[in-house]
Every structure is written in C-alpha cells, then in structure tokens.
Write a protein that binds this DNA or RNA. Sequence first.
RNA 1: GGGCGUGUAGCCUAGCCAGGACAAGGCGGCAGCCUCCUAAGCUGUAGAUCAGGGGUUCGAAUCCCCUCACGCCCGCCA
Length: 563
Amino acid sequence: MFLDFRRDVESLLRDSLDRCEFESMIREEGTIDLELETCPHADLASTVSFRLAPVLRRSPASIAKDLENMIELPPDGLVGRVEAMGPYLNFFSSRRFLDSVLVQAQGDECWNASPKGRAIVEHTSANPNGPLHVGHIRNSVIGDTLVRILRRAGYDVESQYYVNDMGRQIAIVVWGLDRYPMDESKPDHAIAKVYIEANRDLEADLSLVSGVDELMQRYEAGDQEVAARFRSAVDLALFGLGETLVRLNISHDSYHWESEFVRDGSTEQILRSLELTGLTELDEGALQLDLSSEGFEKKLVLKRSDGTSLYTTRDLAYHRWKAQVSDRVVDVLGADHKLISGQLKAALRLMEVREPEIVIFEFVSLPTGSMSTRTGKFITADELLDEVESQAYQEVTTRRPEEGEEFRRAVAKDVGLGAVRYDIVKVSPDKATTFDWKSALDFEKLSAPFIQYSHARACSILRKADQKEFDPRLLAAEEEVALIKKIAQFDMVIERAAAELKPHQLATYARELAESFNQFYRCSPVLEAEPRIKEARLALVNAARKCLKVTLETLGIPAMEAM
RNA sequence: GGGCGUGUAGCCUAGCCAGGACAAGGCGGCAGCCUCCUAAGCUGUAGAUCAGGGGUUCGAAUCCCCUCACGCCCGCCA
C-alpha cells in the first residue's frame, strides 16, 4: 500500500537525480537523502533541492523544476503526478493507487508485513510481591502493544515475563508468610498485605532482618524446603497478576525465573566471561566490574562478599541467552532502570553480546505523590478496571436503554478495557504522567470508544446491505479519497512504530483513521446512494472496517460490531 | 554535586531523533446539527512570546550551548 507508493517515488526521484547528473556531483558524500515526508500539500514531498542548492550554487526552486522535468512517470504507475512547488517537489498518488488500495483492503493479506525474524519482548516483569498497580500496567500496555506491532511488522515474537524470584522483596514475602496468614482476597492482593505487614515489622525491629538474609542465602544455595516456599509464594502472586493481565487482554508466551539462570550455571559463566575482560576486581570480598571505559564512574558489583549473586548479574545471563536465540531483544522498563540498564548494556558490550533495545517509560504518579507497593500507596489495576467498566456500564445504559442486560455488560467490558489501554498507549512513554480518575473515565474523542464507535458504525452499515462487485473509480469525493489514503498508510505506520518501538504512533493513527471515517460517514450516504455508487461506497466502508479492526486489535483493544 | 528525561493555548497531548510550505488534536468555553446508514458522532468559533536566553542555518518547536522548573536515578536492593 503506502510503502509501495513510497518505494516508487524514491525510485523516480533517484532516476531523476541521475539524469540531472546531480548525484554524481556530490557522490563523495554518499547517497543523497531524498528527504521524503508526508505533508498537507502532497502525498509525499521532497526537500532535496534545499540540500542540493549550496553544492550546485543554484536556487532550490530551479533545481526542483529540473528534477520535475526529468521525471518520467510510467503511464500506469502508483505515482500520478509530480509538481515542483517553489523549492518543494510534490508527489501525488495516482487513481490506480487508490483503486489498488481499495481492492487490497478487501482481503486479509495486506495487513501483515513479510517475515522479518525472531524477536523477544520482555515486559511487565513486576515483582511478585503484590498486585499490578496503575504504574505497572503502563509497562504491560506499552509492552503488549509493541508485541502486537512487531507481529504485524512481520516478526515472530515471543513475549516474556522475567520473574524476580531471588530478590529481597520476595524473601520478605516468604518470611512474612510465616508470621501472617494470607486472607481470602485475590492472591496477589493478599500477598501485598503480607508484604506490607512484614516490612512494618522489619522496620520496627532491625534484628529481624537477618532472618530474611538467611532465607535468601538458603534459596540461592539450593535448599529444597526454602525453594518450595519461594515457589509457592511466587506462584500465588503470579496467578493473581495473570488474572489481571487477562483482563487487560495481555498474555505472556513464557515466564523465566531468575533462579533458572543461577541453577543452570549461566550466572557463573557470566562472571567468568567478565573476568576475562580484565576489568574485574575484588573489593572487600565483593567482585566488581570497572565500567569507566564505558562512561560509568561507579563500579558495578557482580557478586556479594557472602558469595550470593545480584540482580544485574543474573540479568546479564538472561540477556546473553535472549541475544543468542533471537534477532531482536526488546525490554520495557521503568525510568528507575535507566542507569542500571545502561550498565547492563555496557557489560554486554564488553562480552561482545548484542545489546537489547530498551524502551524506557517515565513514572505514573498519584496526585498525592508517587506510588509504593511497600507502603501500600497505590491504585491497583483491578480497581481501575472495575471502576472504568462500571462507569462504561452506566454510559451504555444511558445511550442504549433499549438493549438487553447481556449486551450492555459486554459492551461495558470492551469499552472499559479499550479506554484503559488507549488512555495509556496514546501518551509517549517518555512523558511522566499523573493518574487522574476523571480522565481515565472519559469516553470521548481522544479515547478508545471513539474508535470502537466508528468500527461499530461501519459494521452497522455492512449488516444492512450485501456486498457485490464494485468499481473503485467511482470514489472521488474529497472525504472518500482522504479515507482511502489514510487506510493505505497502515503499513507505513506499522513499519515505523516497529522500527522505532513507539506504540503511541499507532494510537495517533487510530484516531486519525476514525476521524477520516467519520467525515466520510457524514458526507457520503451509503445505503441511500444510487446502486453503482452504493456498491463502491460499501467496498470503502468494508475497507475502513477492516483497517479499524486490525488497528484496534494491534492496540489490544476489542473491535465490537455494535455498541 | 553528577547523569537521564520532560517543559507546546485555562487543562491534557501529537509534532522533536531524520530542521522546511499556515504549530495539529482533545478537554473545558461560546454558537450550531438527530423527519437522514448508531449524536460515544459532526460543523463553526475564540484561545500559543512552542519554559527563558544565546548560537548554527537561506530557514529552528525540531540541532548546539547556558539558565530555570518538574520527574527519575546515582546501594554488596530489585
């Protein structure tokens, strides 16, 4: 679709540069950047003339004119028109392009890119010491959307949850379970209560801390009885976490426990590999890595003086394994991991292991300050989902009073899920946000229901008519052409979001697509149009419906047929 | 103190990495549209020294430097 058009424009422009012999004049600088971009004035515009002007000592406008004159448009290509507008070189798609988009969009193949390789995306990986809160799910939603985008872009993706089962937090939970029984609530919530109580005790009486240390040492040493207690506590928490993730339409293909990488010896192998670099040293019994050559002043501790391993060392083992079995490794991490992930990458470089691509998201705070599992200051994802769904139920009851209970419940569930996911994914990950109930419960334009609604309207039209043969050339109204072009951009948006790992670009596209459809909906009546126009418009509605559905699914948001 | 990130209308956000043709949306405000395919929609309107200052450039919200404000980090925690 649009990528085909862009490829044709690139080749036409390169040919033209060759014919004008511009390229040879500045070849020593390498190939010319064609400077193609989408803009309001053309389907693709090039500003390459500005770049050429100082080298050729000519005005950008005259260069653009020459380039325009030297372009030979094939009679039946995707590029319909080229026009030098001052210094800009504007390219417009052809009628054939619009027709082919409309035909392709009736099928299912055009929504998936060709195979690219294997990718591993690690996301969520919250400590199993409590439920997911509204900060954690920013990780989950960004991560899961990236998984879906990469799949669309042609990657064979495995999503992984890295379980921190060897950390202090989980040892505190295991220790606390001896003193406090879990109550009847959802297991992750019950574990959090134990964790909060245990922390309170440990802070009140520092002599208790040795009990936690001992548990950690026995776990790492392979004590069977302790291992069983750890496993049982972690499993309980993960079970609860998993239920929340299901509500968010998120699932992981595999779970990997930190302790795996200790037991199979790969953490020890990491230590040996790093010792070979000659940059390690013992300081008071602890093994440290000097990363000053990589720009880190502080030394990275790899092994405690009591011989136990540390999070980063185990993480290095995990990352070396991931790099070995895939073509792309992506981690989604909170802003508090910026430094440590930089050190991780540096250590991997020293071992000549391919570094992961790290997507950092900034924190979600509450109006009252930052969240904390330890002190119990958080809004859980479960609470949020309950509240949003209940609000959505009221909305749908107001708007569709004639519909039955079952319909309204189902719509509320899908609207609620969509609203939560879209609200998170629409914001760029590097923006810190403050959680706000009012905005979370808003179902208007800049939200998922806006897009779901467009899809439902398209479905409603299609339900009322049978699709027959159509002539795409009959779609020439401004809004119709704009909608076709917007649909065509799907492949480019996916490619870019997958390359840059920016899921919010897809959220922006989804809103634009829905807007284009709504404008078409207003201007072009379908069912009442004369037969041949009606068939063509039905085909466009069908194309838009498919594109909206695929876009929503890639965002992990349900596309209902009615709402 | 050092590092990283952010600062765009009353509020929230896109655009910034790859500088280019009028800074794009939403919420809220104001004025309209349901004898017409679902009004969770659509149309119009008002509202911006793109944090501030300097620099590079034919051209800067976008690149560089400085300042200010906010967030995160700088553990033998994870």
